[in-house]
Design a binder for these strands. Structure first.
Length: 565
RNA sequence: UGGGGUGUCGCCAAGUGGUAAGGCACAAGGUUUUGAUCCUUGCAUUCGUUGGUUCGAAUCCAGCCACCCCAGCCA
């Protein structure tokens, strides 16, 4: 059962009180002005699951009221991300811009009722008239304009007779309101600019505050969930809906013709997701992309869904993570380890195992024939036989990782040492007979012998503790590997006491390793999208930068490591 | 000296007057051909703080403190 949170509780209460005639209808309303990140995932999961749990629906609505910042590219990417996460929105994709005509008519209605007026104050003047946090504002000289004049001017605004920002339509509320959002907020502004959905049909665009509540009402949304910073906007959300004629609102709503209880939507706010060691601000993320700090929105180090996907995160891991962080009203910063736990949990259960040597050290097994080759059948998953087996070629020359051999091992070292024994994973126990070095004293090769009586059984009379991974030298395939670490080396790069988040970048957030060797099965046509390279971590192929001759693998996450020298 | 919020274990978080769930992290054991996984155990006499009400308070009341949001014709 889903954990309890204040929103689920509220919905349960609303249902019990039959507040919406048994309906639960939510919506995810992104502005298409950037890529979705893990913070959006929290909202997506919340909105979609809360609807599904109550046999309700969740719409996808692009809140596209500011064409200057938006584009079709983002619309497409957002739709793609949501589908990838595994959610299905109700019906067609919605656009706030799809309601522009209704919005216009409702604005006329407000004007007719003396609740909105056309203002000729410039943006700068409007700011002065607004007052401050502690001082009330003062009325615009245009506040008393007649309804007829307002109607005419608003129509001419729409007709394109005026320049940008020369007029605006404002709600007539209260310039002395302690809540600044209620000091005659702007409802419409003039922008002679094309819109990605409506082209040049419009030159006046409604603001978020005016649009959002009406769009919710049109879509018969019951619970309008948003983040905490919109809390102060709720009185305005309610003011607009309550000052419109409810019958005409109902009439244009999706369920207008149906015999359902028409109830105005209700906004509820929850805390945004913050993760330590990363940033979530769209502006900063965009800046990192634009200035080349990262390679793009889908850079595997980015907290974007596109980046995490490329990094190897699974939809299930992200959904589980969002569920595990919960939903509350207290602003919190979630520890990275929770995200890491979520992806490890999923991949441990579902990713097939394989062997890959990151930094190869050649080992020749001296007591095998030159052309020795045998096929070992290894289980793809140690606990799940259903995941099958694969053939792994075992040959006279193999590679092990340089880190798995030490001439002067630290205390507790369980791997290979000169004269010592170690188990080759899924294969034999070998003993190191000789260490070959070059002129610089660098180890270039190990000469070992195989205990042929140890395949699938313990050696007799002694214990061999260590198990290391290996790959056939002649049949392994060279690949490149990208190791990722957190992008920042401070917990909260966006905190107030940090001047510039760019000063806190982790210089080792990406380490490229070339010349790694992987067992051949990993590159099969039908290979799994994710692997655990045993003892190294979880990896996936990078579809963007890989070439036929140089496959590149991204390390999604390391294995937990309780030893780490 | 305006308005709106939030404060429960290192990090999330449940709890809504009946005597502090859970997860992550961490620590200690056990199993293990991945120093992984898995299993077991431990981990808040205390809920920002000070008072008050009550047989009983994290939950109700009052004061105080800390932090967050708001002065875009952004969302």
């Amino acid at each position: 059962m889903a954990p309890s949170n204040f929103i689920r509780n509220m919905i349960a209460e609303d249902l019990a009180a039959d507040k919406h005639g048994g309906r639960v209808h939510t919506r995810f309303p992104p502005e298409p002005n950037g890529y979705l990140h893990i913070g959006h995932a929290k909202s997506i999961c919340l909105n979609f699951s809360v609807a599904a749990e109550n046999k309700g629906h969740c719409n996808l609505r692009f809140d596209d009221t500011n064409p200057a910042k938006e584009s079709q590219e983002y619309v497409d990417a957002i739709k793609d991300n949501i589908k990838w996460l595994g959610f299905e929105w109700h019906g067609e994709v919605r656009y706030s811009s799809g309601y522009f005509e209704y919005l216009y008519r409702f604005a006329v209605q407000l004007i007719e009722n003396g609740l909105a007026y056309v203002d000729s104050l410039s943006p700068d003047e409007a700011r002065e008239y607004r007052g401050t946090l502690t001082e009330p504002g003062k009325n615009s000289p245009d506040r008393g304009r007649s309804i007829e004049d307002n109607l005419e001017l608003f129509e001419r605004m729409r007709a394109g007779e005026f320049e940008d920002a020369s007029y605006s339509l404002r709600a007539r509320i209260d310039m002395a309101a302690p809540n600044i959002n209620m000091r005659d907020p702007v409802l419409y502004r003039i922008r002679h600019i094309a819109h990605h959905q409506t082209g040049d049909q419009w030159c006046i665009y409604p603001t978020y505050d005016y649009t959002h509540c009406i769009s919710d009402a049109i879509e018969n949304i019951t619970h309008s969930l948003c983040t905490l910073e919109f809390e102060d906007h709720r009185p305005l959300y309610d003011w607009i809906l309550n000052n419109l004629d409810i019958a005409s609102l109902r009439e244009v709503s999706d369920l207008g013709k149906q015999d359902v209880k028409y109830v105005l939507p209700q906004q509820t706010e929850f805390a945004k997701l913050k993760l330590n060691y990363t940033i979530m601000g769209k502006r900063n993320l965009k800046e990192m992309v634009d200035t080349g700090v990262v390679t793009g929105w889908d850079d595997p180090r980015m907290p974007t869904l596109a980046g995490m996907r490329r990094r190897g995160f699974t939809p299930a891991s992200i959904r589980n993570f969002c569920e595990s962080v919960g939903v509350s009203r207290s602003e919190s910063i979630v520890d990275m380890s929770m995200l890491e736990h979520a992806i490890r949990e999923d991949l441990d259960r579902n990713a097939p195992r394989a062997m890959c040597v990151l930094k190869p050290l050649k080992v020749s097994l001296e007591n095998l024939d030159e052309g020795h080759r045998e096929i070992l059948s290894l289980q793809n998953h140690p606990k799940n036989e259903l995941m099958g087996r694969r053939d792994v070629p075992f040959t006279r020359d193999i590679y092990i990782d340089r880190a798995d051999f030490e001439e002067e091992p630290p205390a507790g070292f369980k791997r290979l040492v000169a004269g010592g024994e170690v188990r080759l994973r899924g294969s034999y126990v070998i003993k190191c007979m000789d260490v070959v070095k070059d002129a610089n004293g660098e180890i270039t090769e190990l000469k070992c012998s195989v205990d042929k009586d140890t395949l699938g059984k313990k050696p007799e009379g002694r214990k061999v503790k260590g198990v290391i991974h290996w790959v056939s030298a002649s049949e392994g395939i060279p690949i490149s590997i990208r190791l990722y670490d957190r992008l920042f080396n401070v917990e909260n790069p966006e905190s107030k006491d940090i001047e510039d988040y760019r000063d806190c970048l982790n210089p080792n957030s990406l380490i490229e390793v070339t010349g790694s060797i992987v067992e051949p099965s990993v590159l099969n046509e039908s290979a799994s999208p994710n692997f655990q390279f045993e003892r190294e971590g979880y990896f996936c192929i990078d579809h963007k930068d890989s070439t036929e001759n140089d496959p590149i693998f991204n390390r999604t996450i390391t294995l937990r490591d309780s030893w780490s020298a």
